[in-house]
Structure formats: C-alpha cells, structure tokens
Design a protein around this nucleic acid. Structure first.
Lengths: 237, 237
DNA sequence: CGGCCGTTTGATGGAACTCAATCTACGTGG
DNA sequence: CCACGTAGATTGAGTTCCATCAAACGGCCG
C-alpha cells in the first residue's frame, strides 16, 4: 500500500489540471501527488456510485470518462454531465449526503480519494472547481432548454474539446470521443437516431470528421458561429 | 444602521428554514438573526446580479422570489431556477468568482449577507444547501431533457410547492405563484403559448386551480402520478 | 378612454420522435 | 476459417408534439 515517496511532478497532468484552479504551494502539490498514488481502477460500464446511496468522499478522476445520470420510472435516461481527467466527483459531499445521481464509468477509469482535510490552496482549488461544475450544469440547462439539436451537439462538442484541451488530451482539433451516439442522445435530450442524422449533417458540411472513436473539429470558427460559445471562466482572469 | 439586538427567534422563518439544514447552536442562530437585521430590499424586476460580473458575497433570501437566468445571443432566454425565502445566492463564491448567471427579482425581494466567516453549524448548513442546490439543478436538467411539457409543468409545480412548504409559505395545497406564463416558459424550455395550453388542460382535468396569482394543487395524488416525483432529500434522513 | 401587459384561442408548419429495417464492425466459438 | 451473435451506426417512412404566426380578449394604470 505504501510506496516510496517520489518527487511530485506537475507533469502528472490530471493533478496539474486540477491544480490549475488555484495557486498551490509545493506542499499542496506533494499532498495531491501522494493522494494520486492511492488510485483505484474502475472497469468500463461499471456504475460505481449509486443515486440515493450515501455519497462517499470526494474523488479526483485521474484518467478515463465517467458520466452522472438518472433514470426515470419508465426507463427514460438523462445524463447530467461527464467527469473527465482532472475533474472531481462527490464535490458537494457533506455529513449526511446522499448521491444525487448515479456515476458510471464510460471507459476504464482511474480515481483517487481527494486529500483530507481540505485546507490551504487545495481548499481554494475545491471552491473553484465547485464553481466550474456549476457553470457546466447551467450550460447544460441552457442547451436543453433553449437550443436546437444542431446547436446542442455543437455546443457540447466545443465544451468537451475545451475541457480535454485543459488536460492536454487533444491533438490539434482532434480528440477521442468514447461515447456511443445513444450516450450523446441521453446527454442532449434527443434520440440516438436524431443524433445520428445531426452528426451526418455536420459531416456533410465539413464541420466535423468522425473516424474510429476520434472526432476532428474541422472548422472551429464556423462551429463557434453555430452557437453562442463563450470560453469557460479562466481561473485567474 | 445599527438596531438594538433583539432575542433571536426561530420564528423568523426564512432563517429557520435555512437553519433547518444543520443542527445549529444557539450562538449560530444568534449570528444568523444578527445578519438578517442588515437586510436589503430589492425592487421587483430589478436585475441585481449580472452574469460575468464579480460575484459578491453569499446572500440569504429573506422574502420574495428571484430567478437566475442567462440570455443567448439571439434573445432566447433560459431561467435556471428560482431563489425562494430561505435559499442562498452566490453559494459557490470564492476568490476570483464571477457570477455564472444573472439574478433578477421577480417580486420585491429582501436579502441579507450571509454571516462571515462561515464556521461551525453554519458551515454545515452551507454544505447541505450546496448539495440541495445541486439537486435542483440536476432535476431541472432531467425535466428539460427527458420530460414532456405536461410532465415538466407538474414536476416543477410540485418542486415549488415542496420548497415553499418548507418555509411555511403554503396554505394547504395552495400557494402564491407570482410568475407570468412567459416566465414559466423560460424556465421549462417552452413557449408561453404552450404553457398556457398545458395549464388549461390541467385545469380542465381538475388537477389544478389558478386564481389571482394563487395556484391550488387540487389533486396532489394524481399530480404525483403524472411524474416520477420523489420528495427532496431530507436533512437528517 | 386608450395603451400596455399578460392571457387566451385558432390555424399552420416544422423539428424531432417512433417504428422498422438494413448495414457494419467485431468478438466468439465451433 | 467461417458461421453466428451482438452492439452500434445508418437509412426510410409516418407521426406527434410543440413552435410559429396571427388575432382577440381581459385587466390595470396613467
């Protein structure tokens, strides 16, 4: 269980991305790096946090994609958002918290418990992440409430690109997209059939290219023009 | 500015509703009651927090309705949720926070700054409120993404009823509903015309009654059957 | 009284859903 | 190596829910 302490490196990118949201001391970074050594691997497709169950401690996602979702009585399924490397889960943890949504691993996922107690720079980073988390939920509401299928898709793709880029997980305008079309549909409040047709249209227009789990945003300018895209709030604006 | 200290009373219901989310000591309640004396009155229709502006300190809503919203480039309008008496605003406040949404007074609103620093039982209450706030955002996402107009309306009415009831602001199954139908439409991702027709249907079915800004849920049982309604998470379950 | 805001009603159109079937890629076991 | 099964992507036809456009109605206030 105990491994020999290694020099903490900001090159451990999910940690560094998390860390990017506050000015962390060398000690803070050591604490995070130490926490990351206690990583746990979760198999793809596994629902590892259940809605209504006592929410556990806060977790840092080190690699992979997970999603938060809820299922309605009759089987309708809504995905609230994704947790990408550097994101936190169970962020609103407190005394008698129960999980407000299920969390499922979309790919294989590595997580580690966030260091306890939360103090100093790490507390500041927590607060900043909480605010960012809220920003994404509000954006999701605006997408679902007031955008067309085409706009929802483009806005969502731009959000994912920006978030992955912050962890160094993009390659130019390309990035891995491990979601099925049905998964995208459950996120955007559409049917998988309509997601398919909308993606086809974007492809035919030369706005995106899709091959083997990798998407390329061929024309970011025109994509941004499709929606009211604002860059996410930067930590030290 | 300074008023003579009065004995703190839990009968000051918005404070007591806020307080209901953690076990507060007598001192905590005194602190809250003192904070409530510095109340500020905001006129109806006034946008008193602007999206993108530096978010101020956390505020407690003492009376009235406010809503958080965002406007898209082309004028489309989305309301994220309402702040009712006992709710908090600017809850995800931190160092360099900017407001992720505008906040507008729907009715005349009274707010007071939350006591600083946030410690002890009040900190616990803050954490619980944050979790509840997240719960409402997730519910709003599920409504917009996966419910029909009828379901959205009923689910939203039930949510508002429960929240007002927690502050003692309901009278049996009736409560004041100061929103215009357009406001409801902007909340539920519909047009005001369709909100109107859907309300008419619910009326004709004897499920609700609407008179002079007051709504009555005539048949809560059948309303609950319309949607997958779960009671909100209780503080000390 | 007249203008305004919000509600109500009607007619029409379109975006997205449903149902149904085919196609492809991929893994698995005979 | 090929038959088979499955998961996901794709395409087509028909339908529904909700938006749009247009107009009338009611209450309220200056």
């Amino acid at each position: 269980m105990m491994t020999r302490p290694q020099p903490a490196s900001v090159a451990d990118f999910p940690i560094s991305r998390f860390a990017a949201f506050a000015r962390l001391s060398a000690d803070d970074i050591d604490i995070l790096a130490a926490a990351a050594r206690a990583r746990r691997v979760i198999a793809s497709r596994r629902e590892f946090l259940c809605e209504g169950a006592p929410a556990g401690e806060p977790l840092i996602v080190l690699s992979g994609w997970a999603y938060r979702s809820r299922v309605l009585r009759d089987g309708r399924h809504q995905i609230f958002g994704f947790a990408l490397p550097g994101d936190l889960l169970n962020l609103s943890h407190h005394g008698n918290a129960v999980a407000p949504a299920a969390v499922t691993a979309l790919t294989e996922v590595q997580v580690c418990p966030a260091p306890q107690p939360v103090t100093g720079g790490i507390a500041a980073a927590f607060a900043a992440r909480r605010a960012l988390e809220e920003h994404y939920l509000l954006r999701q509401i605006a997408r679902l409430g007031r955008m067309t299928a085409r706009e929802r898709l483009v806005d969502w793709l731009l959000e994912i690109r920006d978030r992955l880029a912050a962890s160094g997980l993009t390659f130019g305008d390309s990035f891995a997209l491990p979601t099925t079309q049905e998964c995208i549909a459950d996120t955007l409040g559409l049917t998988s059939i309509h997601v398919n047709r909308t993606l086809q249209t974007l492809r035919r227009e030369g706005l995106i290219a899709l091959r083997g789990g990798t998407i390329t945003l061929c024309d970011p300018e025109r994509l941004i023009a499709v929606v009211d895209h604002r860059p996410p709030p930067t930590p030290f604006a």
